[in-house]
Each structure stands twice: as structure tokens, then as C-alpha cells.
């Protein structure tokens, strides 16, 4: 049994934030925080210490990889597991991302109703 979790999503697409929020809540009753940029996400992560971070790879200005590195570099956030959301489905690309030290990679398009199960599986909840 997975207890209610608090998930931070960092994605510049607001519709993604919305569908993820509904998916997490409807399926698992999890709470969700949303940030539209890397810096905003880092700030929220520091403030709220979420159980996991869903981080979009492709974002303007500060992209997912840079955001991840910043989170890792900060002792306040370095222990929070990060899962990349990416449109790049190629195995090689997934491996490259995983090599950075993230907990997992979920490729778009996904069904947000399936997200809690996928996250739980990745993070062994």
C-alpha cells in the first residue's frame, strides 16, 4: 500500500501539469505541486521537499538536465528522487539520461492515469 504522496512536476506545458495532477489524484489520491520552469521547480523542491520530482527534459532556458544537476548539487534537494519526462523514446537516449543518475525515465506520450503505478514501480514504493 502506497500512502499519499506529494509529487512535484516541473514542465513548461501547463496542460501536462493539469492532466498529471488529475491522473495522480484520481488514481492514487496523491497531491501535486507544479512548476513551469527549472528555477521555480528548484525553489518549490527546496520549500516543500516532495516525495518525487517529475522533470521535463526539454524546457526553454534551463532545461531538465541542468535543473537536475542543480537539484543534485543542493543538499536540500539532492536526496529527492527525480524521474525525467521525455519525448525522446530512443533506448540510447534513455540510457544517456539514466546515466546522469536519475531514478527513471518516462517517455511521452503517457497516460497520466498510469503514472502512479509507473512511479511506484520505478521508485520501488
Amino acid at each position: 500500500m502506497v500512502y499519499a504522496k506529494n509529487i512535484l512536476i516541473i514542465d513548461d506545458e501547463e496542460t501536462i501539469q493539469t492532466v498529471v495532477k488529475f491522473g495522480l489524484q484520481l488514481t492514487a489520491g496523491w497531491d501535486m505541486l507544479a512548476a513551469s520552469s527549472g528555477p521555480e521547480g528548484i525553489q518549490l523542491a527546496q520549500q516543500h521537499q516532495p516525495d518525487a520530482i517529475l522533470l521535463d527534459v526539454m524546457m526553454p532556458d534551463m532545461d531538465g538536465v541542468a535543473t537536475f544537476k542543480a537539484l543534485q548539487a543542493d543538499t536540500n534537494t539532492s536526496m529527492i528522487p527525480v524521474i525525467f519526462l521525455t519525448a525522446k523514446a530512443q533506448a540510447a537516449e534513455k540510457s544517456q539520461l539514466k546515466a546522469l543518475g536519475v531514478s527513471g525515465v518516462i517517455t511521452k506520450p503517457f497516460n497520466s492515469l498510469d503514472l502512479p503505478e509507473q512511479i511506484a514501480k520505478i521508485l520501488h514504493w
Binding site: 491522473g23 506520450p109 497516460n111 497520466s112
Partner: peptide, 23 residues
């Protein structure tokens, strides 16, 4: 293809959520 994935994710998820009947 990449650019299509993001809006597809939104559509796909939104429709799935709708079809649960919980909204």
C-alpha cells in the same frame, strides 16, 4: 514527432481521465 508527443500526452491523458466517469 517530439513536438507532437507533448500535446498528445495531454489529449491522451485528458480523454482517459474523462472516460473514467469520475469527472
Amino acid at each position: 514527432s517530439h513536438e507532437l508527443r507533448t500535446p498528445l500526452t495531454s489529449m491522451h491523458s485528458a480523454l482517459k481521465i474523462l472516460s473514467t466517469g469520475r469527472l
